[in-house]
Design a protein around this nucleic acid. Structure first.
Lengths: 331, 331
DNA sequence: CTGTTAGCGCATTCAC
DNA sequence: GTGAATGCGCTAACAG
């Protein structure tokens, strides 16, 4: 009937009229078929076909207070490190009928705060953030919003709500222990300037027991910045033996620069990365790195959120997924 | 721990009461300050602070028919190839106050059709899809929805609405021409089984003038699949001279396998990838590949969508961003 | 400049 | 099983 190309979209009202039933019956036939007779369902289904009806989730969500959306904040979607998490999160949510709204904070706290505000205003059924939320304003707003929140890729004994991650202090400490166990004493760090990398550095220093030469590069780190970082570190200590890098990209840059300077890896210089990127096993030499199960983080975050949405009790609101050092040829 | 299940959120109504103004005045003070006196704005602003009000965009969108969301469909977010596009798109949209809803089709047409339905039901102000939409059902539904659509990473003279991409036939043809120009005659193709890669292959074959040995791997392609693909191709032609790979990941795998078999690159075997991934310039030897400006695709798609949202006329609804062969050491 | 009146499209009460 | 009201929270229209 209303087949004019006018932008007047067809609503449930049109479907109900077409099917000769009331609005609410049409609604139930579509989203709650158990409550309606087979015959009516068939009639409504035909009417949907005939009218080309596509439900308006916004309108439904307004009343039911369910948006079927989850907001995810990452520092930078182009940073490969968080991709497995985003992918696993998207897949798990999608299977439950939820979609992801993406936001990039750019490693910027002010930006994160603003973005959290926008996200809350969309009334998602859950919010996943990368890292811990440090801003008290944001923490308060999130709490008052009542929206389930999962902080990921880090751990806290006092999360806003829930958390899935691992201890960056322990990572730094473990790599330092690994280096020391190898007998290396002239150590160095090449690190991005983001929060979590800094914490890994602190863990490293604590275990080493003293400060070490450090090259800091702006996040997100990259191969090019890694080359620069090695130049930096060699200027600080020409006889440096082992370097802990805050990402595999950075480590790769350090390796490239090392080779360009005629340094042998690992004989002259040992290198450990972070993240176990897909290329880490295939560089030459292959890269020793800290492996983190980013996909699990995403899957677990989704499960926490979905459980919460179903009103189930959360047995364990803080989950440690751990990490492990994968030793390859670069050490 | 114990959260009240229904923390009745503060609404604009509360703000209006607190500020002693009417609902609509509060609304305007927040989202249309030009229409309200300075004094009133200040009063409302104070009330917002006092109540901790965060607007509900869903409710506003219902009436104003603007969701300030754009849906983006990619085959797989973990495939690095589309990341620059997603990033540029997110950034450009965010600057205009729009957020991105992400969907993954998994290179599956049925899944894409279903996902498009879900996305339409969220009434986004725009939809960006990767590749062309081939399903007639989807094309019709999109058209009827009246939502602006940008098809990306490909071109069509008959787009659903708008398109930003390049010709995959021409890419295949250009690489074939490049190979032939080098004097290579025993050619091969290692390709993912997705639509666009297949079209590149067809372009390649047309220019070569005859069929060539082809190893097909399931998308998304990877380094591991590349190793397999080379084994495949060598079985078909042990004296193959040059291979066109449908992704840099695949090309990297071919290179690794070639080296494992004692083949010299490019003397024994020349390799050309596709996409110019960040690692392509840093493999050993560095990888010749087809460079595409993925970020531009995202930026242009955002611009088209935003212009359309502002009701502006679109001068050029189909934009060709082109491509170029970056010659490196692998050829 | 400000307020009143109507809804946006649907789902949650209740009735029948 | 089905239906009639009622409003979710907000904003276009018009008024004043």
């Amino acid at each position: 009937m209303t087949d004019t190309n006018a932008p007047k979209s067809v609503t449930l009202h049109d479907v109900a009229r077409e099917a000769g039933v009331s609005l609410i019956t049409a609604s139930r036939a579509i989203s709650n078929p158990g409550m309606v007779s087979e015959k009516t369902i068939a009639r409504v289904r035909l009417a949907v076909e005939a009218t080309g009806y596509i439900p308006n989730l916004l309108a439904g969500g307004l009343k039911s207070r369910k948006s079927l959306m989850v907001a995810a904040l990452v520092p930078n979607i182009a940073v490969a490190q968080f991709l497995p998490t985003v992918k696993a999160l998207t897949d798990a949510l999608d299977a439950a009928g939820y979609q992801l709204i993406l936001g990039q904070t750019g490693y910027d706290h002010a930006r994160e705060e603003a973005l959290l505000g926008t996200m809350i205003s969309r009334r998602p059924d859950g919010i996943v953030v990368t890292g811990l939320i440090h801003s008290q304003v944001s923490r308060d707003r999130l709490r008052r919003s009542g929206i389930p929140v999962v902080e990921t890729w880090d751990l806290s004994d006092r999360p806003v709500d829930m958390a899935v991650g691992f201890s960056h202090v322990k990572v730094g400490s473990a790599v330092a222990g690994f280096f020391l166990g190898k007998g290396w004493r002239r150590l160095g760090i090449a690190t991005g300037d983001d929060q979590r990398a800094s914490v890994r550095r602190e863990g490293f220093l604590t275990t080493v027991g003293h400060d070490v030469p450090t090259a800091v590069v702006p996040a997100p780190s990259s191969l090019a910045l890694g080359r620069q970082a090695l130049a930096d570190l060699l200027a600080k200590d020409p006889h440096i033996e082992a370097i802990f890098c805050s990402s595999d990209q950075l480590a790769q840059g350090v390796m490239v620069e090392a080779r360009a300077r005629g340094l042998r890896i690992p004989e002259d210089l040992a290198i450990c990365g972070f993240g176990d990127a897909d290329f880490a096993a295939h560089t030459d030499p292959s890269l020793t790195t800290v492996q983190v199960d980013g996909a699990s983080i995403g899957t677990l975050a989704a499960r926490l959120l979905l459980d919460r949405c179903r009103g189930e009790a959360i047995a364990q609101p803080v989950i440690d997924v751990g990490f492990r050092i994968v030793e390859r040829a670069s050490t």
